[in-house]
Design a protein around this nucleic acid. Structure first.
Length: 451
RNA sequence: GUGGGUGUAGCUCAGCUGGUAGAGCAUCGCGUUGUGGUCGCGAGGGUCGCGGGUUCAAGCCCCGUCACUCACCCCA
């Protein structure tokens, strides 16, 4: 069902596919708002400097310019104030928080479901234009760790209510990992993290090699770092496993203990509130370097090749304004990636491709006004109706409705008697436009999950 | 950006050693003249991605180019 598009990396859906996407977007908004996250939309463009600040990640950014300005002969190339499309929702949000700090109440929680753009090479599940659904909680100066727990709970519930089958929220804590490396005597903890991040892709042998060359690890240090990364539990038993590994370590373990306590609390709470979804997975590192504590990543069971469909984490300094800093914790769902996979593997489909429940047939060209009156009577009672544009043979009009999945065709004869035909059973009965109502299941297109 | 694969009808794809461009599905029409789906018969639909070269002759061979796609990098 999901087709490739003429412009690679820019997904455009057919009507029935769009309904699946809409359903997922609606569900996300509903769940987010149920947990008190306000909706927010930020502008599509940011200044280039804003986008380039964060973490110095070399994102593929689309710049935006005015054609007239470019064409002007004497236009000196301006560097400052150049505009570019946002590549995620976190950076614009950070800018928004700083700009509006005086009007917001902290801790501030918001959701933001918007398109973002990246000029990367498109691939299966990778788009140049795609929708991200973010939730973040941001504090003024400090933000209780509980927010990390809540983010995981909300996102697990949101994913739970979408037609995507089983998923695993894989959670780690950077304090734990970095604290462990420090205790081990490894100085360059970011290099170690980067190496560990490749574990799933290139395997333990090559990671060990990598750790020795790029992070200056000894055989024993590499072995222990890998052993830590291989810990994965659905309950808090990882704590004992980590402790077994740290026995006899002489370095400073304060940071390690802090991370361990945080992850333990998180796994315990999420396990209680949304059972079976969260796993402590000590191999999760995340590429971005601004995460400072909890890190989240999510895989669809059976679709591991798709990569993460949802990830995020805690950052001690989302933004700063003078001496104020705003710590935050957030997570983002790759909606387009998810929708594409739901469509291509037919995890969910729409019951029909159009909103209309009733197709009002036209007996003669002169009857159009009367047919619209019938349709209006239905519409005023919340029943979506469409009137035929031409008085074609009834067979054609029925076929037109059939092809779009419209379940009912309405007929009015020359005496003004009304009949409605259920296109699936072929049954046709007398009906009153003022009172007739379709079955609940036929009112609107529904999204059905195929198991 | 680097490397591999693929470009033929709306879709999925055949096309032999270079010799007049095909099938299935879809669409449209008729059978059934204003109540669809099934069935039968028929019809329309092509810059063979684009440009050049070799040849009497190119969808096929050669060169270039573009697009799509997969992998790497990075990531939702």
């Amino acid at each position: 069902m999901a087709r490739s598009t003429s412009l690679s990396g820019f997904a455009e859906w057919l009507p029935a596919e769009r309904l699946v996407e809409l359903h997922m977007l609606d569900t996300l908004r509903e769940v987010f708002e149920r947990h008190g996250f306000s909706s927010l939309e930020s502008r599509a463009v940011e200044t280039l400097e804003t986008l380039l600040q964060k973490g110095e990640v070399d994102k593929e950014i689309y710049a935006v310019s005015r054609l007239q300005e470019e064409l002007a002969e004497d236009a000196a190339p301006k560097k400052d104030g150049r505009l570019a499309l946002r590549f995620d929702n976190t950076v614009p949000f950070a800018r928004y928080v700083v700009e509006n700090a005086g009007h917001l109440n902290f801790p501030f929680r918001r959701h933001q479901i918007q398109k973002v753009w990246r000029g990367e090479r498109p691939q299966d599940g990778r788009y140049r234009e795609f929708t991200q659904a973010d939730i973040d909680v941001v504090g003024d100066g400090e933000l209780p760790f509980r927010a990390d727990v809540e983010i995981a709970v909300v996102i697990a519930q949101a994913l739970d209510s979408m037609p995507i089958g089983e998923f695993h929220l894989r959670i780690n804590n950077r304090k734990l990992a970095q604290g462990f490396y420090t205790a081990l005597g490894l100085e360059d903890t970011t290099a170690v993290l980067r190496g560990i991040d490749k574990l799933e892709k290139i395997g333990p042998e090559r990671v060990a090699e990598d750790l020795k060359t790029t992070a200056g690890a000894t055989d024993e240090q590499a072995r222990k770092a890998l052993a830590l990364a291989q810990i994965r539990t659905e309950d808090t038993s990882f704590v004992d496993q980590v402790r077994a590994l740290t026995e006899g370590l002489t370095g400073d373990t304060a940071l390690l203990e802090e991370g361990l306590a945080e992850l333990e609390e998180l796994i315990a709470e999420v396990g209680k509130r949304v059972p079976g979804r969260a796993v402590a997975d000590l191999s999760i590192a995340r590429g971005l370097d601004y995460y400072t504590g909890t890190v989240y990543e999510t895989v669809l069971v059976g679709h591991e090749n798709l990569g993460s469909i949802c990830s995020g984490g805690r950052y001690e300094s989302l933004a700063s304004k003078g001496r104020r800093t705003f710590p935050g914790v957030g997570i983002s769902i790759g909606v387009t990636r998810l929708v594409a996979r739901v469509l291509s593997s037919e995890m969910a489909t729409a019951t029909r491709s159009v909103p209309a429940a009733v197709y009002v047939a036209l007996r003669t060209e002169e009857d159009w006004g009367a047919a619209q009156d019938v349709a209006d009577q239905l519409r005023s009672r919340g029943i979506n109706a469409e009137v035929a544009l031409k008085a074609e043979k009834f067979g054609r009009q029925i076929r037109h409705a059939d092809r779009r999945g419209i379940p009912f065709v309405w007929f009015t004869d020359e005496e003004g008697n009304h009949e409605v035909k259920d296109i699936r059973s072929g049954e046709q009965t007398a009906a009153d436009p003022a009172t007739w109502t379709p079955a609940d299941d036929d009112m609107l297109p529904r999204i059905v999950e195929s198991v």
